[in-house]
Design a protein around this nucleic acid. Sequence first.
DNA 1: CTGTCGCCATTGTCCAGACCATCTAGATGG
DNA 2: CCATCTAGATGGTCTGGACAATGGCGACAG
Lengths: 262, 262
Amino acid sequence: MSALRRTSRPVYQQIADELRDAISGDDIGPDGRLPTEAELVERYGVTRGTVRQALAVLVNEGLVVSDRPRGYFVRRRRHMTYRPQQELLVTDGAPAMDRFHRSVAEEGRTPSQTIDVSIVVPPREIATRLRLNAGETAAVRRRVRSIDGEPFNINNSYYPLSIVQGSEIVLPHDIARGANRVLAELGHRQVGLRHHLISRMPTPSERHRLQLSPGTPVTVHYLTGYTAEGIPVRAVENVLPGDRHEVLIEDGQVPPDNESST
Amino acid sequence: MSALRRTSRPVYQQIADELRDAISGDDIGPDGRLPTEAELVERYGVTRGTVRQALAVLVNEGLVVSDRPRGYFVRRRRHMTYRPQQELLVTDGAPAMDRFHRSVAEEGRTPSQTIDVSIVVPPREIATRLRLNAGETAAVRRRVRSIDGEPFNINNSYYPLSIVQGSEIVLPHDIARGANRVLAELGHRQVGLRHHLISRMPTPSERHRLQLSPGTPVTVHYLTGYTAEGIPVRAVENVLPGDRHEVLIEDGQVPPDNESST
DNA sequence: CTGTCGCCATTGTCCAGACCATCTAGATGG
DNA sequence: CCATCTAGATGGTCTGGACAATGGCGACAG
């Protein structure tokens, strides 16, 4: 059908462009199905390899997924709002899991999590933030939180071993009153947080554990909690899939939030 | 050379895995060169198509770039720390461009920017934050900041037209004392900020304007500035390439920062 | 009506080959 | 010694074809 110009831009790019326009122009809505490879082969008069190259572009842009053998579909973003301030500073409020639990349940979905505790030499990003010397160990609570059985994010919290040894924190259970409360009872109340956010493509391990489809970046949120003496007592690494999360941080005097956290 | 198992995992995945391990295991360091396609064809006894499929995996993970026709190279991340709090709340401090300018110059690199001002109906994300009705217009100052002539990030600041009309803000020049100061002089001093961060793959336009290589996600930072009355008077959309930026936000009482912002 | 099984449409993987586009290094000429 | 040109190495694009893997749906049996 539509003849492609032989000029300069590669054919597969032109096909990708037309499909992208069809998607952003609502010719194909969210969850809508794209033409099959065979249809595109016929429409553009090119080989299947070229068509697949075009579709790969869209897949790697995160616009489209292939659900074999049903076809290619337009992806839908479904955001959950993540509020790292609430989650971590409020030593006296509801602990993290409760809030995650509740906000998910409010949408009629069922949350769950796995916890795994161990003593490790933390990765460099964490060791630096906890000001550990090379080879020094820390306790880590690794969590994978899920919604309706599907993994949603990864949450690894590290604590200097010298502080938490023998406490509840090194036990592999949920801490009902929150780990921050336990830290405070141990004499290490946090009064300040430093948030560090980077965006990158996931590692193969992350892609597998979070069941990420191609073209999905992650936000890695490093959080360091400090006591009034300026000592770091907690370092968290949150891995948040970009297609499921947005991060909200407030600073100073802001009006109440009316947005829904779909 | 190394025979690949015929078991289950696709050959191109196995090749990608081996190369990835070589990279993370420091057999190939940052900026290091990967084997050529021809070498991999011979080493694994597969066709060039399969080798290219393996390399495409690494490229889309953001681990590797192909610099044609020199070969494939391991990417290096070079982070600049972005502090949205400094940049926007300090109405009385140095304005944004000055700080950008200075911090870049400190590293011996030369910063620059382009400014473009216009009156538009803002995109939904902005209109919602400024609480504009459908079709209402706003002034937008679009900036592209560059380092050593290479684009670094995109910064689009929107102001409700009713507030800034006739002021300096709608003129296409750098505002030496900062746009926040001008807003304050107009009676709209900001006392609170709301930061909204999402991570996604760039649009073709962003990829082009920021000269992003494949496998590079962006962090989009939406910032809303509120007056003491809770009125939004400024909404900013920052597009930050993931391979060049990290975002730092502090909350509460934290000790001084010793990290260098390489 | 219900469950099972097999066909079929669709995408995934891999092969083999051709020509193009671009940068670099070395040869060549002044 | 320096500038210019050229050949070669390398990745980019596209063709054409073959077989595998998977999930849905319809035909069929109970």
